[in-house]
Design a binder for these strands. Structure first.
Lengths: 236, 236
DNA sequence: CTCTGTGAAACGATTCACAGCA
DNA sequence: TGCTGTGAATCGTTTCACAGAG
């Protein structure tokens, strides 16, 4: 149940290699946390991998593998202990560890980020709000005053934030990312939809509604063509 | 240049399988389109895979493979012909083909989707806006009147829309997805952050700011630990 | 000589099948 | 019997190395 070095794998560290969480798994972990929190709040004590899979649309085996990677263990016959699992998931770096972020951009998109009820549920917090347009600075949003970019370095130093959400217009993305990099931000969730290169040492994860939709359309198309070729996918 | 059946791979279809675009590629294609459009608007005629890779943070080989999958060809020494490549990318299903979508949810998140300048650039269009809250219905947003869910089936039938963006509160996601499925929608971009299961026959792609941020934090952490172990990653 | 295009190898994630425990 | 946990096989993408065209 602990870790039992399977067979090979003896590089330098006798430790279980807490690093080895695959990136796709990493992306799913927050979803698991949300599900387990829901169940905890609903008063349940146990939850099986199968049930989690059904809710999230993954396979049960994958759920078990992911949870194992996160350091969570379950009990045969019962499933996973809800509170304990929540605690394990929260203990992961990036889920509770690096939980503060800066928001750049206070337009509609930025407001939507602030209003996201998921933020709090994931244990995340927007520390400060910045904007590049002078006429947007000094407004009060969600209880915080919008700051000019010039205040960035100081804020990063003070809060120790390493993450930023970039919710500006595409043509401001370059300037903003530069400022963020200079201020010491390490990771950016870029919602701007800009097509410009970012500073190399920044870890950037992009998302934009339009790309997401376009990709979805493509996947849908691919899936339907596949169905037409296969006949029935599964029938035992 | 056409397709040349490599070696093995001869199941049933002697055809080039125009279906065979891998899903990760499919997700990147909209990004390429954006870059090539930018360059076209900037007046450039040629663009190399290396340059595209640098802008988007991918490897040059990957760019070439992706563009090849999309049916675009380049010329040695010059790179890819910008206008021609834009046309090729636009010709793909889901990039210009299935380009209309329905929006459910007219709160801040829905407004952000409507305001996304990327929408138009990707050739996408929000056909109609719906909401579950009666007091939000009948407002006019972005030139369109917000409709009640009861108008969904008719709208889907009329427009032939297969895609929907779900931008409602988490607790409304279940009801909304059910209505969408019943109305004949096939693919949903779910921005609600809900942890409830969706109808099985729907293709659902989820995104929420919080999960995205949390995953980013995790990736950042993983990357930094890796750096610490490796010494220098690249030095020839 | 530069940049595309591609077989083949390498890699990593998902799935399968089954061992083990309550 | 029900569910977790995991070696092993499978599947698919990314990367490498080089052939080929302008």
């Amino acid at each position: 149940m602990r870790l039992a070095p399977p067979a090979g794998r003896a590089y330098t560290s006798p430790m279980p290699d807490p690093v080895a969480i695959p990136i796709p798994t990493l992306r799913r972990l927050p979803e698991y946390l949300r599900v387990f929190r829901d169940r905890r709040d609903a008063g349940d004590s146990w939850l099986s991998s199968e049930a989690v899979g059904q809710i999230l649309g993954f396979g049960a085996v994958q759920v078990r593998r992911d949870l194992a990677a996160a350091g969570a263990s379950g009990s045969p016959k019962c499933g996973y202990p809800v509170s304990e699992t929540v605690r394990r998931l929260e203990a992961l770096p990036g889920i509770r560890g690096l939980s503060a972020a800066i928001l750049v951009g206070s337009g509609r998109l930025g407001e939507a980020v602030l209003a996201d009820p998921g933020m709090e549920r994931h244990g995340l917090r927007i520390e400060e709000i910045f904007d590049l347009s002078p006429d947007r600075v000094d407004r009060v949003l969600d209880g915080r005053r919008v700051l000019p970019l010039s205040r960035l370095p100081e804020t990063v130093r003070r809060t120790g934030c390493r993450l930023a959400v970039l919710a500006v217009d595409p043509d401001q993305a370059g300037a903003a990312s530069l400022a963020l990099a200079r201020a010491g931000i390490a990771g950016i969730l870029d919602l701007s939809g800009a097509a410009s290169p970012f500073p190399k040492d920044l870890l950037v994860r992009r998302f934009c509604f339009a790309s997401g939709l376009a990709a979805l359309a493509g996947e849908l198309d691919a899936r339907e063509r596949k169905k037409n070729l296969d006949g029935f996918p599964r029938q035992t």
